[in-house]
């Protein structure tokens, strides 16, 4: 794996972990009635996914 791929790959792993934490926050927010936390966490997941898509492309994993 080339250097840029390793760098962007690390970011993708980190953002995946952030997404996972946001999923836990959604579940906890729903369970405890903290809907703003749950809603905000959905936002965090979508933001993380947007950057994952970007880094997949910039790292050369997808696209041209």
């Amino acid at each position: 794996m080339s250097d840029p791929q390793a760098k962007y790959g690390s970011w993708i792993v980190l953002l995946s972990l952030v997404s996972l934490a946001a999923v836990v926050a959604i579940a906890w927010g729903e369970y405890s009635g903290h809907r703003l936390l749950a809603g905000g966490s959905v936002g965090v997941i979508l933001l993380a996914y947007s950057f994952i898509l970007l880094f997949l492309r910039k790292g050369g994993f997808t696209g041209v």
Binding site: G39, V44, I45, L53
Partner: peptide, 13 residues
């Protein structure tokens, strides 16, 4: 699309 929707939801929270 993901970024915009995510930002809206994050600001809402």
């Amino acid at each position: 699309t993901l970024f915009s929707l995510g930002l809206i939801l994050l600001l809402t929270g």
